[in-house]
């Protein structure tokens, strides 16, 4: 059986996207708008930037609230989406955006001591 090395996805917010161009990322944002062809969505990032995610296939057009997107960073404002997960409001209703941003910043300003 062939073994595949899965690339580690990097947790990012809006301002860290451009550091991971063409690399796999995990991005969390709240839905601003679903495009009419249902193939792209506009999200507001945790640090209040607007990011567009393009998918190959049409997605559920009634998407709302907080979404976790897995994909590849394409530019500082766009992501090529592979998959998405609509986060239930029960776990996002008191989502602390500032803490998330702070955590993301910490991850990339410190080396990983466990590696």
């Amino acid at each position: 059986m062939e073994s595949v090395v899965l690339p580690t996805r990097a947790f990012v917010n809006g301002s860290y996207l451009q550091k991971f161009i063409d690399k796999p990322v995990t991005f969390i944002g709240s839905v601003l708008k679903v495009a009419s062809d249902s193939k792209s969505i506009t999200l507001q990032s945790t640090d209040d930037q607007v990011v567009t995610v393009h998918f190959h296939e049409p997605i559920d057009s009634s998407l709302d609230g907080w979404v976790e997107v897995h994909g590849y960073a394409k530019s500082k404002g766009t992501i090529g989406g592979e998959s998405y997960y609509n986060l239930p409001s029960s776990i996002t209703n008191d989502f602390e955006k500032q803490q998330f941003n702070e955590t993301v910043a910490l991850i990339y300003s410190l080396s990983n001591p466990l590696k």
Partner: peptide, 20 residues
């Protein structure tokens, strides 16, 4: 999680010497 995360962030900052 909120309290734990806050605590961990503070700990990491303290231990690594990063301050905001």
């Amino acid at each position: 999680y909120k309290i734990a995360n806050e605590k961990l962030i503070a700990d990491i900052k303290r231990l690594s010497g990063i301050s905001t």
